[in-house]
Amino acid sequence: MKEILKYALILMTVTLIASGALALVNSLTAPKIEAQKQKELQQGLSNVLCNVDYGIIEKQQLNGHVYYTGYADKDTSQLSGYAFSAYGLGYSSTIWILVGIDTAGFITGINILDQKETPGLGARCTEIKSGEKNPWWVEQFRNKNAKTISVVKDGGTIESITGATITSRAITNAISEKSKILLQQLNNQG
């Protein structure tokens, strides 16, 4: 019995020291990780709201939907567009997309935040050709009406990635569905 107590005490000490060390490391790295996430989000947002590079982006919430409003200038009277995240079930993963639209509902830019699609097929949705800034596939979304887009196979205008119709369709439909909901909500609001 005494032996068990001794062992329990030793194990507890070891785990306490370990947790203490981890708490220390965590407190050192947590601000850095948070900053990384913020930076990624900010970069994504200014990327999809391409005309607000020097403006302000604000986080908004409406009936549980989180979205961001972008303003063209430092003053917040001139609304230039909205950004929101959407997700769709792709071929082998959930694809998260950040979408920017202008006030009329036309797409200003798209950023694929997270995907684990098949390399060489679906994953090409994030492929950037050398010398270019943005992935070539998502470029075709620019200036299209977010509510009505669909892939060619479904009678729309978005060209699918060769051999990856499911991925292409998932992204396209995710954008159109989410923008329909959000714009509806915004209209109701005023």
């Binding site: 060390a21 981890l22 490391v25």
Partner: peptide
């Protein structure tokens, strides 16, 4: 005890790499 020690260092790597 070995597992606790290893898990501690793995978490350190995990957090540092994420940052």
């Amino acid at each position: 005890i070995y597992i606790s020690i290893i898990a501690t260092f793995v978490t350190i790597v995990d957090l540092t790499m994420a940052g």
